[in-house]
Every structure is written in structure tokens, then in C-alpha cells.
Design a protein around this nucleic acid. Structure first.
Lengths: 349, 349
DNA sequence: AGCGTTACAGCAAGCGCTTTCTACATACGG
DNA sequence: CCGTATGTAGAAAGCGCTTGCTGTAACGCT
């Protein structure tokens, strides 16, 4: 039925062992023999049986990438960068790896199940991206799984996710707290004193860290926060729109709205415009991440740029063992404040 | 070292065969035995060896999704929808499949290599998304590969891609031509007679079809096209920005710019604004796809909505054999014209 | 009571590859 | 000219699972 190694061997008049060695190139084979084998492979249109190979060699060429939402460019950009480094087709010959992008949709169960699936496939490496869920039980389960994977020889890298000590995973963490603080300080510096904050979903490290940064900035400047100024929502535009309307309802005197990310900020802009408010004359808006579309908003968005592609690339290289892990297995990646048109001096109240 | 089926069998005092059958649930096993086995699995924290299982059963639970650019929400949205249907974790018990999103980056070689990799893994199904590359040699190679995959029992579905007759692949094609025509007709209806067109990369079916639709509309209304009115570029914002500047340079009297997709249209808007032109008073702009951010542009973008998520979901179901293939294996999916603020009556010249 | 059924469980033969160990040349130093 | 490297190829033992086939009880029927 399908062509097997043995068929190739027969055609090339050599043993299966030799064919395997030619294909893997990890054993000396006479040039003439190699050629004969390659010719047979070509003629028979032979394709290696991955599972069989993985079973026999006890290794696989699968690399898993877990993302919370593949439809969100935040993850798409990281995944793309990771995959480019993983090699996929394009790496050095023979080292072809299949990057598996798994979409957890932010669901704890799926996250765990995907990890099991990857463990089952004996993945060569796994990269976990984005914020983690802050549920003690879930975190413990995840850590245990990660440790098991690491023990089994799978390299685990966390990209844009807080470190998981004692699990053997390498972490490239985004400094969400620092970025959040810097952003809010910029607004305070402009003169804002009443700032609304649209946070991401609760129980997420990213959400918490950004919010903590925001609050740290307020505290540092002696601004007492009003509980009504914070609203939680999802990481999407719609949520930003609704949350902004809610904020406006709660306190129409707000002069700035800080959003959990750029998509949310865009929704906020739309809500403000629909409410007849000008940006930034009436209300300033700030986002986070600096996704490609942010610069196209009108006015363009003040935000914190996260080096998603760079971090992804680095995570990919570390996963492939092509770059050394940072000291202690943990590195913090800083964001950069991008001041643009959506933030300005507050209106005089 | 790692726990195997045999270990579980020993612990549960049954044969490996029984354990396998409990795990696969495809053979009657007494309830008491099943329980004993499940308990042992749990206690030993056993994880099935995927490759071994795939080898023995001659099937795998991998499903491949090929995308041109994972960082582009156009593909992210489709991939997300496909994956949701594939089941990943979430489908019916036991039917856990691993969706593999492969990023070709629009490169023909990578496209082919990924297909080989999936063939090697004996993927259960493969979904190819987005426009195809119009190179005769490449197309032939792809078709041959697809046919081989289909012959080997892998279900192949094309989503948003032109049909590949005789390959055994099911196609869900977007009516790019019709959408393009409708869009341009809308502009002509408003009174536009001098329309610039920013096309996508050459040698791509999507690019060609959308452009053909545009030209068909012009022709239908007796508008003679000026060769200077068309510029080719990539499917990104930057490209749209530059192409618009070029169009303006070539013919400052243009009253409308039609872009290959929404990202390009956003770039076009930015370029127009930077050139001191108002949208739509001075120049109307239209996009294609209706990605989530398009409604947030200022003014919001007139575009053609493509049911990305719906089509992806359907493709996923077909790939899983959970929905019947359309008659003839081909279905055309229509777009819907979304008239918004970026298009208006042309200025009087 | 005798026999065909039915319901489970085990045996053992692979699935297609990798890899260790062995075999055999040929080459080389003494 | 022999013993020992050296380079190359093959034989064969699995890797961990699935599954066809073969028991073997317990059951129901005439």
C-alpha cells in the first residue's frame, strides 16, 4: 500500500538500516550508496512514517505553542515569531520541526488538555504564551504538568508569562507592572487626576500586573483611587466599548481612560466618540501592547510597546536550544512607552 | 522510566490489550475491570504514547491547518473557528485531536514542506486556508501532494481558497470576484469615476479575483481604466500607505481608493490623511474582509464582510466528517457589502 | 442435560522505523 | 606478511501500542 523503508531498501539494493541512515545522515554511508538510496526514495516518492520514526527514536519533531486566542494579533505575532525560529520548514536540513499552535481560548481545561496531548506526542518543546490563570488549583496542576514535561526531556519556555519556579521551565516575562506604571505616570504627568481603568478578565496575571502598575503610579502621586474608576472586561474591543460607557456613567468627570490593551482602547475610543467626546481634548485614552493597528487609530494610540516578535523569537531559539537560557532561567522583558495622539493635557474642569 | 501500557496492565492485573480497549472504548469491557484499569491509569499518571499508538493503529489525531500569515487576524479568525470545530480538547470523549496551525508565510516551499510534514505525521485531516499561489509548477506540485494525502485517507478541505478539481479536496471558496465587483459598483453608484486600486501580491488567486471583480464593475459601467490606477503591494498596512502615496503621485484627481483588504485600506487612510485629504469628502476608501478593527477606523471602513468564522467552522466540521461536503465538493461563500463612513459622494472636480 | 450464544479477557503478531552489535572488506604500520 | 585500525553495510532486537483471533466462563434455550 504505502511505500515503506523496506521498499526503498529493496529498490536501492541495500538494507533498511542503510536507508534510515541515509535519511538521518547520522552515520557514514558511502557516497555511491547514498546516491542510490536517494534515487530510490525519489522514484518511489517515499515519505517517512513520522509516528514509527518517533516511536523507534523516542523523540519527535513536534513543538507546541500554546496561545490564549489565536484570533488576537497579540498572540499571532508571538506565535509567528516563535514558529519562524522553531525552524518549521526552513531550518537546517533534516531538522524539520512541526510547530503546533494550540488555541486554549483562555480555558483552563483546554490549557491542561493540550499540555497532555503534547506530552502524549512526546513534543520536543513547548512554548506557553501570554498571561496565566490565577487559580491556585489550576496553577498547581499546570506546574505539575510542566514539571513532568520537563522531566521527560521536553524543553518548556514561558513567553510573556510569569515564571513558574521549580518546574524547570524557562521564563521570558513581560514587565506588565512596570509598563502599566509608566503609562499611567505619563498621564498623571500631563495633569490627569481622574483616570478610569478598564482591566482585563479577572484571575489573570496580565490583568493583575497591569492594574497593579496603574495603581502604583496613582499611589506614587498621592492620587486616591475611586473604586468606581475600575471596570473589568474581556480583552476585546466590544468589552472596551461597553466598559467605557459604564465608566462614563459612573463618573462623567473622568479625563482619561486607561485600557487593558489596545483592542480595548479602540473600543473605548469608539464609545467616547459616540458619546460626543473628543480625544484627547475631552478624554485621553491609552492602550497596551502597541499592536500594528494602534498607530492607525485616529488619533493614534498612546500605548506601551511590547517587543512581541523579539520575545517570541528568543523564546523559539531557547526552545530549540539555539540560545542559552537567561541566568536563573528568568528574564524580564520591558515595554516601551509610546506617546502618541490619544493622550493630551486634560480639559479644565 | 516512563509509564507504559504494560505497567498499567500489571497494576490493574489485566492484559495490555484490555487496558488499550478501556482507553479507546471501542470494545466491551466489564465495568469492574474498566474501573480497575482507570484507577491504575490514574495512580500511575499514565499518558498514552502518541507515536506508538498512531503507528499501531495507522491513524493519528493530528489535524493540520495551513495559513499564510498567522499574525494576520484574517487567518487567525479562520484558524480559531476551524480549531474550535476540530474538537481539540472539547470534542466528544476520546476524540481529542491536536490542531496544528502551520504558518507558511506565503512561501510556496514552506507550503509544500508543511504538507509533506503533515503527510509524514499521517494527519487525519488538513485544512488549507487563504488564497493560493498562481504558479503553474507550484500548483501542480500542490495538487499532486493534495491528491496523495487524500488517497492516503487524509481529508483535505480548502477554506477561502479556489477549488482544486481532481484532487479529492473539498473547497469552500470565497466569492472574491463578486465581492470586489459589488464594492466597486457601490463606489461607482456614488458617482466615482476615477478609482485607484491597491492590489495584493501578484500571483495570488485572491489578488487576481478581487481585482477582476473591480475591473468587471468598471467595465460594466463603461469606465475605461487607466493603467496608472492600479498598484500592487503586500497585504499589510505599510504597503497600503506607500501604494496610496504612489497613486496620489500618479493621479491626484482620484476620488476613491479601493484596497485589497482592510489592513491595506487602513494604511491608505493614513496616507490620505497625511497628505491633507479628508475621507470621504476628498477621497473615499474601501477595504475587504471586514476584520474587527475596520469598524473602529475613523471614519469606519466601507468593506466587504467575509464570513471568516462561519466558513472556518464549516470547514472544520467537514474536515472532521461531521458535516456533509457540499454538492460537487465545491461551495462558494459570498461576502456582504458593508457600507460605512469611509465612502461617500465624490467631490466635484 | 446438551449445545449454541454471548460477554469478556488474553495471546501474540505486527505497525515501520532506529540503533546496537556484528561482519567484512580494505588499508596501514611494523 | 600479519595484526590492528578504519570505513561501510547488514542482522536483528526492540520502541509501545492495537487488534484479529482464540479461549473460557456463564447464560439461555430446547
Amino acid at each position: 500500500m504505502t511505500v515503506t523503508l523496506a521498499d526503498v531498501a529493496a529498490r536501492a539494493q541495500v538494507s533498511p538500516a542503510t536507508v534510515s541512515r541515509v535519511l538521518n545522515g547520522n552515520y557514514p554511508v558511502a557516497a555511491s550508496t547514498r546516491e542510490r538510496v536517494l534515487k530510490a526514495v525519489d522514484e518511489l516518492d517515499y515519505v517517512l512514517n513520522g509516528p514509527a520514526s518517533a516511536l523507534a527514536a523516542a523523540t519527535s519533531d513536534l513543538v507546541g505553542i500554546l496561545v490564549n486566542d489565536i484570533a488576537d494579533p497579540f498572540f499571532g505575532i508571538m506565535a509567528s515569531a516563535i514558529q519562524a525560529e522553531i525552524g518549521g520548514p526552513g531550518g537546517r536540513a533534516g531538522g524539520e520541526r512541526l510547530a503546533v499552535v494550540c488555541n486554549t481560548g483562555g480555558s483552563p481545561e483546554r490549557e491542561l488538555t493540550y499540555l497532555t496531548l503534547l506530552q502524549r506526542q512526546r513534543a520536543a518543546a513547548v512554548v506557553l504564551t501570554g498571561g496565566a490563570i490565577e487559580d491556585a488549583a489550576h496553577k498547581a496542576a499546570m506546574d505539575a504538568k510542566v514539571r513532568k514535561l520537563a522531566d521527560a526531556g521536553t524543553r518548556v519556555v514561558l513567553c510573556g508569562r510569569p515564571p513558574a519556579p521549580e518546574t524547570g521551565a524557562i521564563a521570558l516575562t513581560f514587565d506588565n507592572r512596570g509598563g502599566g506604571q509608566e503609562l499611567t505616570e505619563h498621564l498623571i504627568g500631563l495633569g490627569h487626576r481622574r483616570l478610569g481603568y478598564i482591566a482585563g478578565p479577572e484571575e489573570r496575571t496580565t490583568t493583575r500586573h497591569r492594574l497593579e502598575g496603574h495603581r502604583a503610579a496613582l499611589a506614587a502621586h498621592g492620587i486616591e483611587e475611586d473604586a468606581r474608576w475600575t471596570v473589568h472586561g474581556r480583552y476585546d474591543r466590544r468589552s472596551g466599548y461597553e466598559a467605557t460607557l459604564e465608566l462614563l456613567r459612573r463618573d462623567p468627570s473622568l479625563t482619561a481612560v486607561v485600557a487593558a490593551n489596545d483592542s480595548v482602547a479602540l473600543g473605548a475610543c469608539a464609545a467616547l466618540r459616540d458619546s460626543g467626546l473628543r480625544i484627547p481634548e475631552d478624554v485621553s485614552v491609552a492602550g497596551f501592547d502597541d499592536l500594528p493597528f494602534s498607530i492607525d487609530a485616529v488619533p493614534s494610540l498612546t500605548t506601551v510597546r511590547l517587543p512581541l516578535a523579539e520575545a517570541g523569537a528568543r523564546a523559539g531559539r531557547i526552545a530549540m536550544g539555539r540560545e542559552e537560557a537567561p541566568p536563573g532561567g528568568i528574564a524580564s522583558v520591558r515595554g516601551e512607552l509610546m506617546v502618541r495622539g490619544s493622550s493630551g493635557v486634560p480639559r479644565v474642569s
